[in-house]
Write a protein that binds this DNA or RNA. Structure first.
Length: 180
DNA sequence: CCACCGATTGCT
DNA sequence: GCAATCGGTGGT
C-alpha cells in the first residue's frame, strides 16, 4: 500500500525563500467509492477532481476554515485514491517554517496535517501540482522496516472509523498529537 | 439561496 | 473541553 511505502521518504519544497524538507513519518490512506471517509466517496466534484486524476499529483484541501492539508494522489486516472501526509520530521528550513508562526520545538514543527500546510506555505493554488516535476517533490529517503511501522485507525473522521488505514513510524517524536 | 459541517489546532 | 473560521456540498 502506498500510504505505508511513503513512510521514510522525503518531502521537499524549493521555495524562493529557501529549501524546506522533512521525512514522512505519518500517513493515512483514503480511497473512493468504498471509503465513506474519503472526500471522493460521493463521486467527483470540483474540490476532489484531482483525486480522480493521475498519481503523483498534489491534492490540497482547505479544512476548518483555516488549514490546508496535503495529499499524494495514489491511484490510476478515473479511480479516486490519495494519501494524506499527516506528519514529517523536519530536515531543512526550520527557520523559514518558524517565520510562518509556529513557536514549538523543532521536532514538532510538522507534527500534523495542518501544520505541514502552514509551514510549507501551501494554499489551494498548490492543488493539482505534479510531485514529479517542479519545486515540490518527494525523494527516496530512508526505508522504514515493517517492525518500525504502527498501523491504526484514522484520526479526526466520523465515518469508516474502524479501517486500519493510518501508518506511523513508531517512536518518532514528530507524529501528530493524537498519534501513537 | 441557505444552512450545515469538517481528513485541525491551540488555548482554557 | 471548546472556540476559531469559511468554502464545499447538498438540500430547499
Amino acid at each position: 500500500m502506498l500510504a505505508r511505502d511513503l513512510l521514510g521518504r522525503i518531502l521537499f519544497y524549493r521555495t524562493p525563500a529557501g529549501l524546506i524538507a522533512g521525512r514522512i513519518v505519518e500517513t493515512e490512506a483514503y480511497t473512493g467509492e468504498a471509503d465513506p471517509a474519503s472526500h471522493a466517496y460521493r463521486g467527483r466534484t470540483a474540490r476532489n477532481a484531482v483525486m480522480f486524476g493521475p498519481a503523483g499529483h498534489a491534492y490540497v484541501y482547505f479544512s476548518y476554515g483555516m488549514h490546508y492539508c496535503l495529499n499524494v494522489v495514489a491511484d490510476r486516472p478515473g479511480t479516486a485514491g490519495a494519501v494524506l501526509l499527516r506528519a514529517l520530521e523536519p530536515l531543512a528550513g526550520g527557520e523559514l517554517m518558524r517565520s510562518r508562526g509556529d513557536r514549538g520545538p523543532e521536532a514538532r514543527l510538522l507534527s500534523g496535517p495542518g501544520k505541514i500546510g502552514r509551514a510549507f506555505g501551501l494554499t489551494l493554488d498548490d492543488n493539482g501540482r505534479d510531485f514529479t516535476r517542479g519545486s515540490l517533490g518527494i525523494g527516496a529517503g530512508t526505508p522504514v522496516s515493517d517492525r518500525q511501522v504502527g498501523v491504526s485507525r484514522r484520526i479526526g473522521i466520523s465515518r469508516a472509523v474502524e479501517l486500519p488505514y493510518r501508518f506511523a513510524v513508531i517512536g518518532s517524536r514528530s507524529v501528530s498529537a493524537k498519534g501513537t
